[in-house]
């Protein structure tokens, strides 16, 4: 008659080594999550701004004559591909100069170029050349800014932030792999007795590697969930603190639902990276044995 006996874990949990490793991986995951969110925000914002900039142009009537400006507005409205226009008043134009000249330093008789903001249709928008030719044939001297330089600068800045974020992310993932590999090798050394016995009773390398891999999958899952959870809390704190309206290097930080969705697969990815690294490390170590 046999008593009920549960099958014991061949590889026991190792609180002494797993505890510190859990914290290291959780911190790495936290930093990696933040880096990934920054990369995501950079992509989202650049796309949004590019669209906004590409759908608008600014026509500057050089003479600053309100009558000419109104005439220009009429010409622009008649061009195919123009959705709407807005003639900026002298006051609005003065406001634009205020940051450079100060509020009280703009004399009333100072000739200020007047601006016409042109909103383009999404489908077949008018080109800067088209606007320029139409104004020229109406005898209006104007310069047209299609914001391409600004959009280019923004895209470059955002691209740099993206590259930096992805580099940080890659470095953190590499650090995570290195830490897991080191911990696995140290775990192997600590459990040399078990590995030797399993090896000599005929356990395939894959069986031994799977034992360690499974352990690091679980550890990665827990540490990944903790790190991602901490990142989610940080985002909530940022949002509650009104950081969503702030801007940094011309990019506004607007973490939203997308940031939280980005964090969802993080524990699974951490578990997979941990498990795979541990599995590979054990196989490599075993291959050095007979």
């Amino acid at each position: 008659m046999s008593t009920e006996r549960k099958q014991a874990q061949l590889l026991p949990s190792d609180a002494e080594h797993d505890g510190p490793l859990f914290f290291v991986i959780a911190i790495i995951v936290f930093l990696a999550s933040l880096a990934a969110i920054v990369a995501l925000l950079a992509v989202q914002n650049v796309n949004h701004w590019k669209q906004a900039l590409q759908s608008e142009m600014t026509v500057q009537v050089i003479s600053g004559d309100p009558a000419k400006t109104q005439a220009a507005a009429s010409v622009l409205l008649g061009i195919s591909g123009v959705k709407a226009i807005h003639v900026a008043s002298r006051e609005e134009a003065k406001n634009l100069l205020e940051p450079w000249l100060g509020a009280d330093n703009i004399p009333d008789d100072l000739p200020i170029p007047l601006l016409v903001h042109v909103r383009l249709t999404k489908k077949d928008p008018a080109s800067a050349t088209g606007l320029s030719e139409a104004l020229e044939s109406a005898g209006i001297i104007a310069s047209i800014d299609d914001h391409q330089r600004w959009a280019g600068d923004l895209a470059r800045s955002a691209g740099i932030i993206q590259i930096l974020s992805i580099t940080v992310l890659a470095l953190l993932v590499s650090a995570s792999i290195a830490v897991t590999g080191f911990a696995t090798r140290s775990g192997l050394a600590a459990r040399k007795d078990l590995v030797n016995v399993l090896h000599l009773v005929g356990a395939r390398d894959q069986i031994i590697a799977r034992l360690f891999g499974r352990r690091f999958v679980l550890l990665g899952l827990k540490a990944g969930a903790s790190g991602a959870g901490l990142a989610a809390i940080s985002i909530i704190v940022l949002m509650l603190g009104g950081v969503g309206d702030a801007s940094f290097m011309g990019l506004s930080i607007q973490p939203g639902l997308g940031s939280f969705l980005l964090l969802l697969p993080v524990p699974v990815i951490t578990a997979m990276v941990g498990g795979w690294t541990a599995h590979r490390s054990v196989l490599n170590s075993l291959r050095r044995q007979v």
Binding site: R5, A8, N196, V197, L200, G202, D205
Partner: peptide, 27 residues
Amino acid sequence: RDEMAQLRRKIGVVFQGFGLLDHLSVF
């Protein structure tokens, strides 16, 4: 390495130092 594992399964070894695993029961 898999064939080596198969060969080892055909061999039973009583090690001089026993090679028992203290985290597992006798069973």
